[in-house]
Design a protein around this nucleic acid. Sequence first.
DNA 1: GCTTCTTGTAGGGATAGCCCTACAGGGTTG
DNA 2: CAACCCTGTAGGGCTATCCCTACAAGAAGC
Lengths: 209, 209
Amino acid sequence: MIRVLVAEDHTIVREGIKQLIGLAKDLLVVGEASNGEQLLETLRHVQCEVVLLDISMPGVNGLEAIPRIRALNNPPAILVLSMHDEAQMAARALKFGAAGYATKDSDPALLLMAIRKVAAGGRYIDPDLADRMVFEVGLTDERPLHALLSEREFSVFERLAQGVNVNEIAQQLALSSKTISTHKARLMQKLHINSLAELVKYAMEHKLL
Amino acid sequence: MIRVLVAEDHTIVREGIKQLIGLAKDLLVVGEASNGEQLLETLRHVQCEVVLLDISMPGVNGLEAIPRIRALNNPPAILVLSMHDEAQMAARALKFGAAGYATKDSDPALLLMAIRKVAAGGRYIDPDLADRMVFEVGLTDERPLHALLSEREFSVFERLAQGVNVNEIAQQLALSSKTISTHKARLMQKLHINSLAELVKYAMEHKLL
DNA sequence: GCTTCTTGTAGGGATAGCCCTACAGGGTTG
DNA sequence: CAACCCTGTAGGGCTATCCCTACAAGAAGC
């Protein structure tokens, strides 16, 4: 029996996914969480083989939760479930240590299969996405500017685009606001932008928002 | 038996919702669609009492599909299911003729209840949202929020959206920066936004940029 | 005609954020 | 392996911006 923990902020979607997993006789949902903090807390007293993780959760988002999950002893495999099927995002998730990346567009049967695969220590990437990843990320030409951003810079970028201010970001990431300002300045230089307005525009045009 | 059609673009979410509805013995999913065109096509040969509609679908989006569903003879009731619990969006959906508006954050039991309610000819609005609607939106409005801006406010708005900072605007308009700040605060209140990021987003979504 | 709302203007004081600078660790490269 | 660049971190000090408040002129309601 494979034990699964579902981390996803939208209740309806979470319940739906639980139902879906319930259909498979070899899978069992043993817990759930609607944000990163809750997830880590739950993992402290619930054993499972797989965490099904939505990247776009409020507060400590899914991506950032990954290394913290893997820091536990005997950590579960992490299967990321994402809305936006950005190749960029998938690459980041895998780099952070996720065992797989599925999108909410894919076939439910594939999801169940993916859970089994990562539970067995394997890896899974949505086939459509894998395709695009070798195209967009693999070929060295014409990569978007935001591909040049470092991990930290990208986290700061995302939050700024969402309207989070420097101080709040500093709190979320447990850093000094000075540090956030530095990251902000550096990422803006990399993206050749001069104002927050342009940053948001950039994010929208590149469908990062 | 209440027959339901599920229109939602993300397959996993759609399947999850189908499972969820399957739990209720008085509800039956008789069809599904992953975009607006498919939805209208399906409705042409499938009878149902309720359409569960995701507004953020690609192509003909959910909102635009509403009047076209209601133009059918003997049209089903439409229950909108939304990710973002925007009061503004809910107001528009209801204006277009939806019978209800639920968010994916809400309790699954409420969703089932909402389906029954609209099937019986009633209306349903997510309680949290209803609260905010009476506060934020004067249900009657159809014209865009930015129509409420005064002349000065609009000039300031445009410049802010273009990335001009408060001081520069003050110079351009030969006013004190304090005055610009005041206009900014007032216009942001009118547009129900809390950050410059949202301001830019608003401008882009309304093609003002 | 008196009150209330909206708009344009701006000050005082507090805070957020920017600019410049710094330093350490890791990677790269000549 | 030394020099350099990139990244993550942050302090000091200055400026931009916000929040609250105020007031006058016109519009609007009653």
